[in-house]
Design a protein around this nucleic acid. Sequence first.
DNA 1: TAGGCCATCTGGTCCT
DNA 2: AGGACCAGATGGCCTA
Length: 333
Amino acid sequence: MLSRLFSDVLPDVQRLAAGGWVEDSASEGSKTKDDCHLREDEMEDSETRASSRADSEMAGDDDDDDDDDSLDDDEEEGGGDENDGDKPKKRGPKKRQMTPARAERSKVRRQKANARERTRMHDLNSALDNLRKVVPCYSKTQKLSKIETLRLAKNYIWALGEILRNGKRPDVVSYVQTLCKGLSQPTTNLVAGCLQLNTRNFLTEQCTEPGRFHVPSSPFAAHPYPYPCSRLASPHYQGGSGGVNIRSHAYGPGYEAVYPPGQDSDTDRNYHYSMHYSGLTTARAPAPHNLPFGPPGARIGGAHSENIPPFHDVHTHHDRAPPYEDLNAFFHN
DNA sequence: TAGGCCATCTGGTCCT
DNA sequence: AGGACCAGATGGCCTA
């Protein structure tokens, strides 16, 4: 299922990458543990390990019947009949004895297949890296896991689709909650933290315009997905220009809600988040059930937890990807 | 130390 | 036949 989903996403990602506006993953990928996991020198080790494993398996391997070699046939006939003994004869093609020549060919074939598989997975991971860059909240040092990247991408696509369908701006809470559907706590915190800071910046930049911003006071109306998003609960609310409190809109634990057909809960809300921001925080595992921002009296959008590393390397893609300028313009209108 | 995440190997299946 | 794709197995690394 997951791989199917990714297969669907992959062509789009590659198209995006081909468009030239997505940074070359190789330049950054080589800096990470994961992406440099198998360097050239390690490739040899890998192949050696593969070969040794293949050798050990082939020592008892008699299932390789697709390697037809007329030179080996004579030996195989003789060798195959010797120890039939008590065993019932099997139907189908005779199993062939693994001669050194066939073992070598089999080994080479396996190594080639392994190399192809490695390349394929590297391509897949490269595409996934590109996908990480176009979903909200991107960090060079704290990559989203594969599954979280796919989930976030799905939510993001859904959220953008909703924007297009409705032609109106959802509020930041709706947006964040939509993005975070089904995400893990750390990822939820990361995404929510990113957008919270966006909110902070946006509010800071625009606060000279009275009445422009509206922090929803009513509970967040509904979820488009039939599964809970209680992770956004936060014990602190900071209304007005101080920031957006997620809890005031959050469901209780385990709450589930679904849009009634044709009903949109967000049509009258305004956006409160910005697509631009200069600094962000992230934490791989912040305190459970608490977002890494916004305690009462705290600096708006600031993350003061000691557990939260600096955000210098965390970005939403919006401040990097030219195609999103139009989207930004839409948000800021 | 358990659990999550990941890279890799491997054999099976499908397609060209 | 060979390549692509897939899923299971395995082991390493990291973090709580």
